[in-house]
């Protein structure tokens, strides 16, 4: 049984195209949740918020917020369905979105 860590991930939409992005360790925004930082403590989430606010001001991204996520076996997964859909794509169109573009991460939706 692999270790499960619970924390928060910073997300936003890229301003110019609306793509869902996640804040990475290096302070960049990446399309893959697997690249995201999972903040485990308040200090870390505060750092993510500060960075995100700067990038919102710099018009790189818009609508940034933190969501609850967990790391299972080294891979990150959103806890709530809404955020899972954002990290993967529509559950009713598995041929669309990150899940179809290879940027969806490790926890894919299954065919209904």
């Amino acid at each position: 049984m692999s270790e499960v860590e619970k924390g928060q991930v910073m997300t936003a939409n890229r301003l110019r195209d609306g793509e869902v992005v996640f804040l990475t360790r290096s302070g960049e925004w990446n399309e893959k949740i697997d690249e995201a930082v999972l903040a485990l403590e308040p200090q870390a989430t505060a750092a993510l918020e500060a960075r995100a606010n700067e990038d919102v001001k710099a018009t790189l991204v818009t609508g940034s917020y933190l969501f609850d996520a967990e790391r299972v076996g080294g891979k990150i997964r959103a806890l709530h369905m809404r955020e899972r859909i954002r990290t993967l794509g529509p559950t009713v169109r598995l041929d669309l979105g990150k899940q179809a573009e290879g940027t969806g991460g490790a926890f894919a939706f299954k065919e209904a």
Partner: peptide, 17 residues
């Protein structure tokens, strides 16, 4: 910008605009 884009039909949704 939000009210301006909305009045031109443009939303920001879960995956994109």
């Amino acid at each position: 910008f939000r009210p301006l884009r909305l009045m031109n039909g443009l939303y920001l949704q879960l995956h994109a605009y």
